[in-house]
């Protein structure tokens, strides 16, 4: 069964529960800033036009590769902390999974965390653009490494 509502990886489910318990938008943003500070960050030295995410109002980049076990690994970097926090949560969601599971991973967790309502349409679109890029990169890694 593909990862999606009602079936999230354990670590992501904990984060969803943590965010959805908070009703104050400012507190949710504080949590997102905390996530940003703990992220496996792609620093600005690694930002290139090739890994830039278009559609974000801020500067955002991701790099994707396979880890030693053949699992998916992404790192992201952004100049806005809210975007960096969203990247950190995306890393939590998909890193370590087989790339084939990343290709079909649902982005609906962001709504379950109560974050979509806190995002402007442009930023929400930016997140979806970023997530679509993650899935495209997973498909590329499958293709380059001869199957799943």
């Amino acid at each position: 069964m593909a990862w999606g509502p009602g079936n999230w990886p354990d670590g992501l489910q904990e984060a969803i529960d943590e965010f959805s318990d908070v009703f104050d938008a400012m507190e949710r943003y504080e949590m997102l800033f905390d996530w940003a500070s703990k992220a496996d960050i792609l620093t600005s030295k690694g930002w290139t036009e090739a890994n830039r995410i278009h559609g974000c109002q801020s500067e955002a980049h991701i790099e994707c590769e396979l880890d030693n076990s053949g699992g998916f690994r992404m790192r992201g970097g952004a100049d806005a902390q809210i975007v960096q926090g969203l990247m950190a949560i995306t890393c939590l969601a998909v890193n370590g999974l087989p790339p084939a599971q990343v290709v079909t991973f649902s982005p609906a967790f962001i709504e379950e965390m109560g974050l979509k309502a806190s995002l402007t349409p442009s930023r929400s679109n930016g997140f979806l653009n970023m997530f679509e890029r993650v899935r495209t990169e997973a498909a590329r890694l499958i293709s380059e490494n001869g199957g799943e």
């Binding site: 400012m26 943003y29 801020s58 100049d79 806005a80 809210i82 975007v83 806190s118 995002l119 930023r123």
Partner: peptide
């Protein structure tokens, strides 16, 4: 140190509509 996008979003959370970009 606060990105303009982050600041605008945090101000919106308080009910303040301002422009960014």
């Amino acid at each position: 140190s606060l990105h303009s996008e982050d600041l605008a979003r945090l101000m919106d959370a308080g009910g303040f509509a301002m422009r960014t970009g």
